[in-house]
Design a protein around this nucleic acid. Sequence first.
DNA 1: TGAAATGTTGGGGCG
DNA 2: ACGCCCCAACATTTC
Length: 474
Amino acid sequence: MTDKIGIHWFRLDLRLNDNPAIENLSKDVDSILPIYIYDESQFMGQASKCWLENSLQSLNTKLNNLNSQLYIFRGNPKKIINKIIQNKKITHFYWNRLYDKDSINRDKDLKSFLLQNSISCQSFNGYLLTEPWNIQNKSGNFFKVFTPFWKTNYELLKNTKLDLSANKKYNFYNQNINFNLNFQELNLNTPKKIWMKKILSYWKVGEDEAKNKLKNFIKFKLKNYSSGRDRPDTELTSRLSPHLHFGEISPKRIFSEVIKSNINEDNKRKYLSEIGWRDFSYNLLYNYPKMTKEPIQTKFNKFPWLRDNKSLKSWKLGKTGIPIIDAGMKELYETGWMHNRVRMIAGSFLTKNLLIHWKEGEKWFFDCLVDADIGSNTAGWQWIAGSGADASPYFRIFNPILQGKKFDPNGEYVRKFIPSLKKIPDKFVHSPWEMSSQEQEKYNFFIGKDYLLPILDLSETRKRALAAFKSISE
DNA sequence: TGAAATGTTGGGGCG
DNA sequence: ACGCCCCAACATTTC
């Protein structure tokens, strides 16, 4: 029994397929010990915790079927890893890389610690299409604008053979370790159990479901993606974002399946560019590690944000009196997800009409979204606030009524989350306050009773935002 | 991955 | 028949 044992440390790569660390480990050792460490000191939103718990269970079931299990621990990774490697048969320790500053520092430290202990330690790319240090413009700098970034990245990928591992049966470890936790002991500290249960009722979690969603997306939705992706009243997005976040599916798998599919080029390109935005966000995060806390454009340090807790609360609860905003915020709270178009409208409303700091929105989204992701979420918020690298220009202020009419023309989306709007005709569904008192009488729908009066004047706050942005431009 | 303000054009009503 | 005005409809500019 001198078999070599290698540890695979799962983080945001909760899958067995297309997992480069596992694939490489399987070549270098006889048996793979799969571990997960829950580190409470690492901030995680409520919705994410819930998804995580379910995703770990799903992964554990898959490992059970391979006569093994997921070995779960809780606490400081270095201390736990130090304890695990007391088993002298452990010769290798692999993982897939992460790209935020805290993870990078932690992993660097661990790598040298493991090497000191004569354990072979390697890391791999299991999370991105192209890692930030492998993509540069002609002058050798990182890209700050999406379009040229994606053009370069796309060409790079199109000409590379993506080595996706086939559905392999790896040899996983199955001996007892006496200090790992079972799932009852894991308890991820989610006090709002009922809320979480509700959110999860809208989702299936895990690697198999991710594959399934991709397959059905390509089969039924991709051909209408280009125009459909902007319509929250349809179901034409892939909804793969939470699966991607937890690494239940790899972006390379998505890229390769979409390219292979027999769908017209325009729709494919449009969808893949959304996967490209994810890589771009990580490219920014890696090169501007401070972007999670500070504006990328430094002039935004002196932006006159307002502190307005009352309005912030109205926004969070979907009580602004603007149907498309309220529907979006309710979709978020109810299902843990919000349609991308509506995320932009709601983000513009918070940062431009309310002049509330994008970090407040970012925090709320991070807590409520099942796809909460440090790269995409902060990049998205900086983009909409105007402080991002190639952000939406400051004067680009969405008018939520026009956006509603354009992208939810029959009001199906807003009525889904604000049922009282079912009583009134399409004409008023995005601006019910425009109904005369006779019309309110006629439809038995009264502003103030069946729906709120808007908390602000759109035209006035638009002008106020333009003035505020003007004050920081040189 | 905007919206509003302003400018231009052209058809139709009308004297 | 013609010029004038009005005002959609569309285009361009500005924020």
